[in-house]
């Protein structure tokens, strides 16, 4: 009772509302993927969320010796991870990724000064250890046959052939290319960029997401694409570009908090991502680009803090010099 201190008003969402909003949007994406491409996926998604909760509960039980509800942010991390890897990846590989993301990314790294996106940490682990299966986009229900398969972005990377960006925006990804590659949707989270963008808009309106890093990510990405002479249309639509702008670079804990920091980190992540797509081994490059920017986060925040104080001091100095003649003691 006596701990209530001013202000006595609260505005905007609290932490739990924020996580619930994110989870709701990610679940919408899951349902969409289930309806259009893989009817099994929503059930798998739900199962992985339960597994993630169990990992979280188990961790608290081991560490503090008590049973506690899993943190809502753990579920968001798990949902993001599941949505960013192939839908039919073996379940134990996902569990390994979840273990790394939740135990190392969230529980161990979280309280420290090192701020990295836990989901990306888990995915990085999967990329390194299960390099093969994380790049294999199997046709749902089908085994590998005469045809090889590729996502629109993979096709662009290997053959230099652009799939219609408009179709990708609408999530309409199927068919084959020259009878060699079956064209398949990518990770469940990235197959309908339009829906993702819409969800991002709603989350922004609800005060859950900040626009700065997402918008600047797209800007930095687009500019670098143009500068490096990459086809902009397909790169914006395909791969996880929009998914990253809405869900990954907006992750509050791992990105800088200050406005300047967010703008700078957004541009940097976008530029790096485009650069990795052009010259790197992975056709996508989100994980490496964003993780690198995460490491710069505290530094960017520090620069912003010092910079603001410097501007304030300079203003005070300028004012005290001319206020002598403007105001002046009578």
């Amino acid at each position: 009772m006596n701990t209530i201190v001013s202000p006595f008003l609260r505005r905007g969402p609290n932490a739990r509302d924020m996580m619930t909003g994110m989870l709701a949007c990610l679940t919408v994406a899951t349902v969409h993927f289930g309806l259009r491409y893989d009817a099994q996926f929503p059930a798998r998604y739900a199962l992985y969320l339960v597994l993630a909760s169990l990992i979280d509960i188990f961790y608290v039980l081991l560490k503090d010796g008590r049973l506690a509800l899993p943190r809502a942010s753990t579920l968001v991390t798990a949902a993001l991870l599941v949505l960013s890897v192939p839908a039919r990846i073996p379940w134990w590989q996902i569990v390994a990724g979840l273990l790394v993301a939740i135990l190392f990314g969230k529980r161990v790294v979280d309280p420290g000064a090192l701020r990295v996106n836990p989901m990306l940490l888990g995915r990085l682990f999967m990329m390194l250890v299960f390099a093969d299966s994380i790049q294999t986009w199997l046709a749902p229900g089908a085994e590998i046959d005469a045809l090889s398969s590729a996502t629109p972005l993979g096709l662009q990377a290997s053959e230099g052939v652009a799939y219609s960006p408009l179709k990708i925006w609408m999530g309409d990804i199927h068919g084959d290319w020259e009878g060699i590659y079956a064209i398949l949707p990518g990770a469940p989270g990235e197959v309908l960029p339009l829906l993702t963008l819409l969800c991002g808009l709603v989350l922004y309106m609800l005060g859950i997401l900040d626009w700065r890093s997402g918008v600047m990510y797209i800007a930095g990405f687009a500019l670098t694409c143009v500068a490096l002479d990459m086809p902009l249309g397909i790169h914006l639509a395909a791969g996880a570009t929009i998914f990253t702008a809405v869900y990954i670079v907006t992750d509050p804990r791992s990105m800088p908090g200050s406005k300047f920091g967010r703008l700078a980190a957004g541009v940097l992540a976008g530029a790096l991502n485009a650069g990795i797509r052009k010259h790197g081994f992975y056709p996508e490059g989100v994980v490496l680009a964003v993780l690198f920017v995460n490491l710069l986060g505290p530094t960017l925040d520090r620069i912003a803090f010092q910079g603001r104080a410097y501007l304030l001091r300079r203003r005070a100095k300028a004012r005290s010099q001319d206020s002598v003649c403007v105001c002046g003691m009578p």
Binding site: R10, A15, M18, G207, D210, P252, M255, G257, K259, R262
Partner: peptide, 17 residues
């Protein structure tokens, strides 16, 4: 919400805004 305990910062940036 007034009687909820303090939690670790999310760095959501609401205070900056």
């Amino acid at each position: 919400r007034l009687i909820r305990p303090e939690e670790p910062c999310l760095l959501c940036g609401a205070c900056f805004d």
